[in-house]
Amino acid sequence: TFVEFNGKKVEYPTPEAAEKAAKKLAKKLNLKVTKKNGNYKLE
């Protein structure tokens, strides 16, 4: 499962880990999380 932000793509071993990381990053970077095709994107 990938988390995409600032043009970077980071892969996580589980969807749970990706979701957790996405939410944490979104909060830190003041972005919102969108889920697309099972992957997460911060914008």
Rank of each mutant, 00 (worst) to 15 (best):
E4N: 04
N37A: 08
G38F: 04
E16D: 09
L25H: 02
V33Y: 07
G7F: 05
K23M: 15
K27I: 10
A18E: 01
V3N: 01
K28W: 13
Y12F: 12
A17Q: 11
K27R: 12
G38D: 06
V3D: 00
V10K: 12
N6V: 05
T34L: 10
K35L: 15
K23V: 12
Y40K: 02
A17H: 07
G7P: 00
P15T: 09
N30L: 06
N30P: 02
T34N: 07
K23A: 11
G38Q: 05
P13M: 08
N30D: 06
K20Q: 12
N39M: 12
K27L: 12
N37C: 14
T34V: 13
G38P: 02
E11Q: 13
K41F: 15
E11Y: 15
A21G: 05
E4L: 09
N39D: 10
K8N: 10
K9C: 15
E11P: 10
A26Q: 03
N39G: 15
Y40Q: 02
F5P: 00
A26V: 02
K35R: 12
Y40E: 02
P13T: 09
K8S: 08
E4T: 07
E16V: 08
T34W: 06
K28M: 14
N6P: 02
N6M: 14
L29W: 14
L25D: 00
Y40M: 04
G7S: 05
K32M: 10
E43Y: 14
L29Y: 15
N37T: 04
P15F: 05
L42D: 01
A21F: 08
K9H: 08
L25E: 01
N30H: 13
T1V: 13
A18I: 01
K23L: 15
P13Y: 07
A18V: 00
A21Y: 08
K24R: 14
Y40F: 13
V33R: 02
Y12R: 00
E19N: 07
A21D: 03
K35C: 14
L31V: 05
N30T: 05
A21Q: 05
T34K: 07
G38H: 05
P15V: 10
V10S: 07
N6F: 14
N6W: 14
K20T: 11
P13S: 11
P13F: 06
L25M: 10
A21P: 00
E11T: 13
N6K: 09
K32I: 14
P15N: 09
K8Q: 11
V3M: 04
N39Y: 11
K8D: 05
F5G: 00
L25P: 00
E4Q: 06
L25Y: 06
K23Q: 12
N6L: 14
L31T: 03
E11I: 14
G7Q: 05
N37S: 07
K36F: 14
V33Q: 02
A17G: 06
T1S: 11
K32V: 14
N6G: 10
G7V: 01
K35H: 09
L25K: 03
V33D: 00
A18N: 00
E4C: 14
T34M: 09
F5H: 06
K27P: 00
L31M: 12
L42E: 02
N37V: 04
V3T: 01
N30V: 05
F5C: 07
F5T: 02
T14D: 07
P15W: 09
A18Q: 01
K24T: 13
A22Y: 02
V33N: 01
N37M: 07
K8C: 15
G38R: 05
E43D: 08
K35Q: 11
E19L: 15
E43N: 06
F2L: 07
K36I: 15
Y40R: 02
T14E: 03
K41A: 10
K36H: 14
L25N: 01
K28D: 08
Y40D: 02
E43K: 06
A26D: 01
K24Q: 13
N39V: 14
K24M: 14
E43Q: 09
A18T: 02
E16H: 10
K27E: 10
F5E: 00
N6S: 07
N39H: 14
N30I: 04
T34G: 04
F5N: 01
E43S: 09
E19K: 11
K41N: 09
T1I: 13
L29G: 04
K35T: 09
A18Y: 01
K23I: 13
K20P: 00
V33L: 12
N30R: 11
A21V: 07
K36L: 15
V33I: 15
P15S: 09
P15K: 10
L31Q: 04
E16F: 08
T14G: 05
G7D: 06
P13N: 08
K41V: 15
E43G: 06
Y12A: 01
K32G: 05
N39Q: 09
V33A: 04
A26H: 01
K27H: 09
E16L: 10
V3F: 04
P13Q: 09
N39W: 09
K27S: 10
E11K: 14
L29M: 10
L31D: 00
A21S: 06
K36G: 07
E11W: 15
K23G: 07
P15C: 09
L42P: 02
N6C: 15
A17E: 12
V10M: 12
G38E: 06
A22R: 01
N37H: 08
F5V: 06
E43A: 08
E43F: 12
K27T: 08
E11M: 15
N6T: 03
L25S: 01
L42V: 13
E4H: 06
A26F: 01
K35A: 07
T34E: 08
E19P: 01
E16C: 12
K41Q: 13
A21E: 06
T34C: 08
A18F: 02
A26P: 00
E19C: 13
A22K: 01
L25G: 01
N37K: 06
G7M: 05
G7N: 08
P15Y: 06
L29Q: 03
T1M: 07
E11L: 15
K9Q: 09
K41T: 14
L42G: 01
E4V: 08
T14Y: 06
L42Q: 01
K32Y: 08
G38A: 05
T34Q: 07
V3G: 00
K24E: 13
K23T: 11
K8R: 13
K32T: 12
T1D: 02
V3E: 00
P15Q: 12
E19Q: 09
E43I: 13
K20N: 10
Y12Q: 00
K20Y: 12
A18R: 01
G7L: 04
L42C: 03
V3C: 05
K32W: 06
E11V: 14
A22W: 03
K20R: 13
K36A: 13
G38I: 02
A21I: 07
G38T: 04
V3S: 01
K8A: 08
K41Y: 15
A18M: 01
E16P: 03
G7H: 06
F2I: 11
F5A: 03
A22F: 03
L25W: 10
Y12W: 05
K28S: 10
L42M: 04
K41C: 14
V10Y: 15
K9D: 03
E11A: 12
T14Q: 03
A22G: 02
Y40P: 01
V10Q: 09
A22T: 04
V33E: 01
T14P: 07
T34F: 10
P15D: 11
K32L: 10
N30F: 08
A22E: 00
T14R: 04
K8H: 13
A21N: 04
K8V: 13
K8M: 12
A22P: 01
E19F: 15
K23N: 13
K36Q: 14
V3K: 00
K27V: 08
K20C: 14
K20G: 06
K32R: 12
A18D: 00
L25V: 05
V3A: 00
N30G: 15
N37P: 03
K35E: 10
Y40G: 01
L31S: 03
F2N: 04
L42W: 02
K8I: 13
P13V: 06
K35Y: 15
N30S: 08
Y12M: 03
K8Y: 13
L31I: 04
N30Y: 06
K36D: 14
A21T: 04
L31P: 00
F2R: 04
E43R: 06
T1G: 07
V10G: 03
T14M: 03
K24Y: 15
A17W: 06
Y40T: 02
F2Y: 13
L31C: 07
K27M: 11
K23S: 09
L25A: 04
E16W: 11
K32H: 09
T34A: 06
Y12T: 00
N6D: 08
Y12C: 04
F2W: 14
K24V: 12
L42R: 01
K36V: 15
K35P: 04
K27D: 08
Y40N: 01
N30E: 05
V3L: 07
N6H: 13
K36S: 14
F5Y: 13
E19V: 06
K36C: 14
A26R: 03
K9R: 15
A22C: 05
T1H: 13
N37Q: 08
T1P: 08
A22N: 00
V33P: 02
P13D: 10
E16M: 11
F5W: 13
K9V: 12
N39C: 13
Y12V: 00
K23H: 14
K41E: 10
L25T: 03
